[in-house]
Design a protein around this nucleic acid. Structure first.
Length: 278
DNA sequence: AATTTCGCGAAGATTACCTCA
DNA sequence: CCTGAGGTAATCTTCGCGAAA
């Protein structure tokens, strides 16, 4: 019972502050930028909250795209960025059991065709990545969350039959989603810590009140014969400020008096179950 | 050596489209 | 059929870093 240090083992400093472990997001060699950039680090809490947790299977599953095999036309906007359009063509649902490769191939063929289909229309249409494309991108993301622009991006784009820009965008969005998930996890963790600290604070307040009440009753307490003084169950010393407690053996591991002058959380934890003198 | 400028890529915020209940 | 919510590709803006001038 009481404050469990394992819950906030990282040490919450000054209220809700904490001591995060800084984890550098692995960057591809050759990516000249910002290994040391503050924004490129992920906060992780020692017990279990790591980027790995978030990027693990459980979370990744939610990122797998739903099946889709709509009729998609590909075109470019004014900036050269690619986009897809189904404006003039009905989407068709992917039939259960349909071949993934076929879907990819169909989309890919449309991509190739529509590369030339530049009608200059400015509508922004969306591509829906196929399962296979998403899976490959996920796989690549697991290895490196950032792209080597001149190599990995090109290679992936070629493999997926996408434009390098699309691969780049996917990685950007993927990193954003990862961070969002991590933030949610962190938020939950901090909420729990906050609740724990609130409880602890409440309990300590109560304890202070008890000690104050004890102090008020102290004159009477001091008049009692020594034999009636409360004995500390752990160190078997008489509580109070008398010479017995003051002349404590320094070799004793947990001197009764020192405990009272060196408050430790665990001491307070168990306090309600022991005599008030402890 | 210090400063300025420029290009690049990443993050963050936002938009727009699509799907589904 | 309509609608709102959620997911996500795409776009825009801002920022930091390294290299060159």
């Amino acid at each position: 019972m009481g404050f469990d240090h394992n819950v906030c083992e990282t040490g919450l400093n000054l209220g809700l502050g904490f001591s995060p472990a800084v984890e550098i997001i692995p960057a591809k060699a050759g990516n000249h930028n910002h290994l040391s950039r503050p924004k490129a680090v992920a906060l992780s809490f020692e017990p279990s909250l790591t980027l790995g947790l978030v990027t693990g299977d459980k979370v990744n599953d939610s990122f797998i795209n739903k099946p889709s095999s709509g009729e998609i036309l590909y075109r470019q906007d004014s900036t050269g960025a690619s986009s897809f359009s189904n404006a003039s063509v009905k989407r068709e649902r992917e039939q259960p059991g349909s071949e993934e490769t076929e879907t990819t191939a169909r989309v890919s063929s449309r991509v190739n065709i529509s590369d030339e289909d530049d009608d200059g229309s400015n509508g922004r249409k969306k591509l829906r990545l196929t399962k296979a494309q998403s899976a490959l991108l996920e796989e690549s993301f697991k290895q490196h969350s950032t792209l080597n622009p001149q190599k990995q991006k090109q290679e992936l784009a070629r493999e997926l039959n996408l434009r390098p820009r699309q691969v780049e965008v996917w990685f950007q969005n993927r990193r954003a989603r990862t961070k969002l998930k991590q933030t949610e996890v962190d938020c939950e963790y901090l909420k729990k810590c906050c609740e724990t600290l609130t409880d602890e604070n409440r309990r300590l307040q109560k304890e202070v009140q008890e000690l104050k009440a004890l102090k008020v009753a102290q004159p009477l307490y001091m008049q009692l014969p020594a034999a009636t003084l409360t004995m500390c169950p752990s160190c078997e010393r008489v509580g109070g400020t008398g010479p017995t407690a003051a002349t404590t053996d320094s070799s004793s591991k947990e001197p009764f008096s020192s405990v009272t002058t060196t408050p430790k959380p665990r001491f307070y934890n168990s306090f309600p179950n022991q005599s008030a003198a402890c």
